[in-house]
Simulated assay, not measured.
Amino acid sequence: MSEEINLIWKKIRSEVKILSDNEPILSQFYYSMILRHQSFIPSLSFILSNILGNKMITNSFLQDTFEKLYFSDISLIKSVVKDMYAVYNQDPVINHYSSILLYLKGFHALQIYRMSHQLWKMGRKSLALFLQNTVSVLLSVDIHPAADIGYGIMFDHATGIVIGETALVENNVSILQSVTLGSTGKTIGKRHPTIREGVVIGAGAKILGNIEIGLNSKIGAGAVVLSSVPSYSTAAGVPARIISKSIEINS
C-alpha cells in the first residue's frame, strides 16, 4: 500500500484520538469506526457497510465484499484518498480528515458508487444495482453503476445528485447538491453529459444530453444546460448561456 495512504490513515487516527479525549461520550463510536481497525481499508469498509446493511444483506457480508475489492485493485483506495484531499482543500468547513470519513454523505455515496462501478465491470450487476438503489434511498444520491467518474471528486452536501448511465466525469470535478447529469430521453447510446477535468457545477444545475462541459468551466446554480460549454467558460441561466470566458494560462 502506498505511503500516501498510510500517511492519511495516521493523520485520521491522530485526529480521532484527540477528539475522543475531548468528547468521551463519543469514544466508543470513534473506537468502533476507526481506532479498532489496523488500517484504512478495514475502517472505510466498516463505515460504508454500516450505512448500507439491513435485514436482507448483512453488514459483515458487505464489509468483506468491499475489503476484497479494495485489496484487489489499489487504484480504488488511491481514488478515495484523492477524493478526501479534494474535500479537505476545497470545503472551508472541513478541518479534519476524520470528519470526511465519518460524516460526509457525499463522500460516502461516492465511495459506494466506486464499489458498484467495480462490481458492474466484473459482471456482478445485480449487486451493483442493489448498492445504487440503497444509496439512493438512504443518502438521496443516485449514480448509475455504469457511469464513469474520475478521482479528486467533491460532492458538496450531495442531496439530490443524479448521474446517469453513460455520463463521464473526469478528475477534480466539484458537484454541489441537486445537480443532474441526465438524458433528454431522445437518443440511445451515449446520451448523458461529459464533464471535463476541473469543472465546478453549482447547486441545482441540470446538464442534459450528450453534451460536453469543457475543461475548468463553471456552471451556475440552477442553470439548465442543453448544449456544450467551451473550456474555461462560465455558463448560467435557463436555458444556460455563456456569460464569461477566461484564457488558459500556460505555465
Rank of each mutant, 00 (worst) to 15 (best):
G189F: 06
I47A: 10
G189E: 10
G204E: 01
Q63N: 13
Y113K: 07
S32Q: 15
D91K: 11
L44I: 11
A109T: 01
M122D: 09
N210T: 00
T184L: 15
S183Q: 02
I153V: 07
S99G: 06
S227T: 15
L52Y: 08
I47R: 10
G214Q: 06
D83C: 05
A147L: 08
G185Q: 03
V93M: 05
Y151S: 12
S227A: 12
P92A: 12
G123M: 05
S228L: 13
I201P: 05
K218F: 03
F29I: 04
S174D: 12
R191N: 10
I143H: 14
T187W: 06
N133M: 03
R36L: 14
I188N: 13
W9T: 06
K10T: 06
I94F: 10
L138H: 04
V225E: 10
H37S: 06
S99W: 09
Q63Y: 14
N172A: 11
S98L: 15
F46Q: 09
L131N: 14
V200W: 12
K82I: 08
L104R: 11
M84Q: 02
I219G: 04
Y31S: 11
I163H: 04
K218W: 00
Y103S: 14
M115N: 05
A235R: 01
H192T: 07
D21N: 13
V16W: 07
I201Q: 01
H144V: 12
S99Y: 13
G152M: 02
E15M: 04
L26M: 14
A203S: 14
A203W: 00
F46G: 07
F40P: 09
N59P: 07
N216A: 12
H108K: 02
V93K: 03
V162W: 00
Y151L: 02
S244Q: 07
I57T: 13
R241A: 01
S45V: 06
V229G: 01
K218T: 10
S2C: 09
E248P: 08
E15D: 06
S233Y: 00
N210A: 12
I8C: 05
L127N: 00
Q118W: 08
S72T: 11
V173A: 04
Q118R: 12
I161F: 00
R114Q: 09
A203D: 02
S98W: 14
S233M: 01
L119H: 12
M122T: 03
A223N: 10
A147R: 10
G222V: 00
I242K: 02
K82T: 11
G160T: 13
V162Q: 03
I94W: 07
R114H: 15
I18E: 13
I47S: 05
I175S: 04
S136R: 08
V162D: 07
W120C: 11
N22K: 15
R124D: 13
R13A: 11
K17Q: 08
Q38Y: 00
L101S: 06
G189K: 03
G209W: 04
A158S: 13
S49V: 11
T58F: 03
I74P: 04
I34E: 08
S39A: 08
I211K: 08
P145N: 07
S39K: 03
E67N: 09
L215V: 09
F46K: 12
V229W: 01
V141W: 08
M84F: 05
